[in-house]
């Protein structure tokens, strides 16, 4: 490689140091909220239909991911409680089941039954809903208020592996603040999870 090319390569490399993340931000409405997705009960359901009078919790979820497994009990409890309080809950599996057979619809049905979900768990059959949200991994939570504005995006809490050592329950605190009309102190958190295996776009 000649020197000028090397210099250009180095400049291009440095210019690429920042990465822009697509998707929705705080204050935005849920995208593709009219798209019908198949629920584990066999019925078709949209995000809009899943919303409750006080808001909506959307969580990108699946079956195979160890982080999801670590959160299974906590998510079930929080999801069921949140539903009862008037905030709709919907879990969305956007993984390509051809790549991850463990994330098939049949397995989702078993997962929902065994854990005792009292909220819908749907398949994003194109992975386009996940793309529109800018969701990248499981689990990843998006909480909307009654006006359908995003008020929290990110992790469930600060300790995936050891529930007994959680010191910050980000999502639970955000739901509580939403219901009590308080301010959501931390509205965006990062978390390790399994990358969503997006279906290829036609």
């Amino acid at each position: 490689m000649n020197r000028r090319l090397s210099a250009m390569a180095a400049t291009a490399l440095l210019a690429g140091a920042l990465k822009v993340t697509a998707g929705i931000g705080i204050g935005d409405a849920p995208p593709m909220s009219d798209v019908k997705m198949k629920n584990v009960d066999g019925k078709m359901l949209s995000i809009k239909e899943a919303a409750g009078p006080k808001g909506l919790l959307v969580v990108f979820w699946c079956k195979h991911c160890p982080f999801v497994k670590a959160y299974e009990t906590r998510m079930t409890a929080l999801g069921n409680e949140t539903m009862e309080k008037g905030v709709g809950v919907i879990l969305i599996n956007a993984n390509d089941a051809a790549a991850y057979p463990e994330d098939s619809w049949e397995n989702m049905q078993n997962q929902a039954k065994q854990s005792g979900y009292r909220f819908p768990y749907v398949v994003d059959e194109t992975s386009d809903v996940a793309r529109a949200f800018g969701a990248g991994r499981t689990p990843e939570a998006f909480l909307f208020n009654a006006e359908m504005k995003l008020v929290y995006h990110g992790a469930i809490d600060d300790n995936a592996q050891r529930p007994e050592e959680v010191t910050k329950s980000y999502l639970r605190d955000a739901v509580t603040a939403l219901l009590e009309g308080g301010e959501i102190a931390v509205n965006k958190t990062s978390s390790v999870g399994c990358s969503i295996k997006f279906r290829k776009q036609p």
Partner: peptide, 19 residues
């Protein structure tokens, strides 16, 4: 250990946590 929001942000505030 405790690979959470605090850990991730200590590496980079832009990292979502994806692997």
């Amino acid at each position: 250990l405790r690979l959470n929001d605090v850990f991730i942000k200590s590496v980079s505030s832009e990292w979502s946590g994806a692997l």
